[in-house]
Design a protein around this nucleic acid. Structure first.
Lengths: 291, 291
DNA sequence: TGGGACCGTTCTCTAAAGAAGAACGCAGCG
DNA sequence: CGCTGCGTTCTTCTTTAGAGAACGGTCCCA
């Protein structure tokens, strides 16, 4: 059983067919057939069920797949670790929540790039759950997500402390006024489309206030949310720093929350590995203990 | 980079030479040379320093080695997982402390073997630290060790609760009498040779009593310790069940300790893996929640 | 109920990789 | 100075992997 066999296996499993896998692997069908077959001979049990429109994993294949993926990912790490001479360089894939990317990362990334120009940093934004999964799958080297995170394969480092505030249009001078003004139906809440981590928190806070929740609108961008809050379409929950930094800061009002509600830590999570890459290590150094 | 290359690499690293590695791998020197060289070409840096009496790892090699070992171990797990159809069978390597093996395991192993005769169980005894390391290195599937254990790669399950007692010869009717009888020098303590986990505990307890420790004798077997306690050579610390079960129970005396001192949990630790083998799972079922 | 599209398997040929063995170079040691 | 141990190089042979073509099956739709 060789790593190349496992790559082939994982590709077939993912694409669901030998023809598609052969395309992805830049080879011909017959080779993929043979590799899979020899793998099945070695394991001793069939890994796929063949049917007219492709292949699906057998139970044995389903047991093997996560190992195959992990082995392939680890072999990539191994090469990087061996080549890593301590000088930060090469690609570094970082993920971040929208809000963190908007207000915290610009200075950090600028500083990092100035200190380590040999590192090719890429940034991808998304919700906490997606980013965490991406880190686990090694498609990201690390990510800024909303805490707390507890997973045996992840190491998390405190990055930023945020104060969450409830944002409304300027005309609402207090939460009580908002409450009175949305009697009955309750406020409309504005959240990110793809499972934003602050969304649960917002719904929980409204529940604690005993407010009904009229309706929910989902957005793809931070500016979209803030813009709609400014035009009094509804309320949202965001870090205070995000609201202050916005161009529309004059048109919105931030309402403070109580201690338990407002506090959220942004953590930097990374995969627990044998060897922490120099690029990632130097990145940690840019917002960690010092600097 | 293929798994067979990594096996070769790890073998050379462990044996410290190409000739020795070739012997272990049942091949000729020239092949090992070529595999290592092609690996070095692929990684892009030398992995070994050549000198007249063999090879030693470079920094890059030292970074690669743990990955290689883990990849090889994981590929073995992968094969076992794929082949594991849910029926407990095949080899199962269990480790245990001497004391647990003496009093707790006989009935457990008997029961397990009766229920799952297809599992070829092997038992190895040793101190906690060694067993834990063996589990981490996948040379044991699981082990009974003294708690607490906290390691991200290990899962531990409560197995047995033990009451530790201080064992002396029969003539010492109380700890006070022992104290008086060993005035000045303090008692001799009898412990296992290879870093027994109760040893620290015993030294700590004597320290809490404010007793000096005259000298320490190290043994290789449980019977040796108990025999020497019976003939009043010194004192030791063991689970009460071990003392009671001994043939020499009539010649020794167990002295109770206070609550904080006497309590020790025996845990069953195993490696955190993607797939828990059926054999191990069924073994856990033999002392776990039920049965 | 055929024909075509799709998909996996099988077979052959060729190229590349790996194993074995012999010869060589080099350092240390008596 | 020759011997021994160890790693490298080179050649030969075998095995294996890759490419391409032909085959056989299923499904779908006319």
């Amino acid at each position: 059983m060789e790593l190349s066999d496992l790559v082939t296996f994982a590709t077939v499993a993912r694409s669901g067919g030998i023809t598609r896998a052969a395309g992805e692997l830049n080879t011909v069908q017959s080779n993929v057939t043979n590799r899979i077959r020899s793998l099945e001979v070695e394991v001793g049990v069939p890994l796929f069920e063949r049917h007219a429109r492709g292949m699906t994993l057998t139970d044995a294949g389903r047991r093997l797949l996560p190992y195959a993926q992990q082995l392939v990912a680890m072999s990539r790490d191994a090469l990087l670790a061996a080549r890593d001479d301590g000088v930060p360089k090469g690609p570094l894939a970082i993920g971040s929540m929208e809000t963190t990317a908007a207000v915290r990362l610009p200075p950090l990334l600028t500083r990092f790039h100035r200190r380590f120009p040999a590192v090719q940093l890429t940034l991808q934004t998304g919700p906490t759950a997606v980013l965490t999964q991406a880190v686990l799958e090694s498609s990201l080297d690390g990510a800024f997500v909303a805490g707390p995170i507890d997973h045996p394969d992840l190491v998390s480092t405190f990055a930023f402390k945020e104060e969450l505030v409830l944002l409304t249009a300027r005309r609402w001078r207090s939460l009580a006024a908002l409450r009175a003004g949305t009697e009955g139906a309750g406020p409309t809440i504005l959240v990110f489309r793809t499972g934003c981590s602050y969304r649960q928190r917002l719904e929980q806070i409204l529940a604690e206030f005993g407010w009904p929740c009229a309706s929910r609108l989902e957005f793809g961008t931070l500016d979209g949310i803030i813009g709609c809050v400014a035009s009094d379409m509804g309320v949202t929950l965001l870090p205070r720093a995000v609201a202050q930094r916005s161009e529309l800061a004059g048109s919105i009002r931030a309402h403070a929350l109580n201690h338990a509600q407002k506090r959220v830590d942004t953590l930097f999570v990374r995969r627990r590995k044998v060897h922490e890459g120099s690029a990632l290590h130097s990145f940690l150094g840019c917002f960690g203990p010092k600097s």
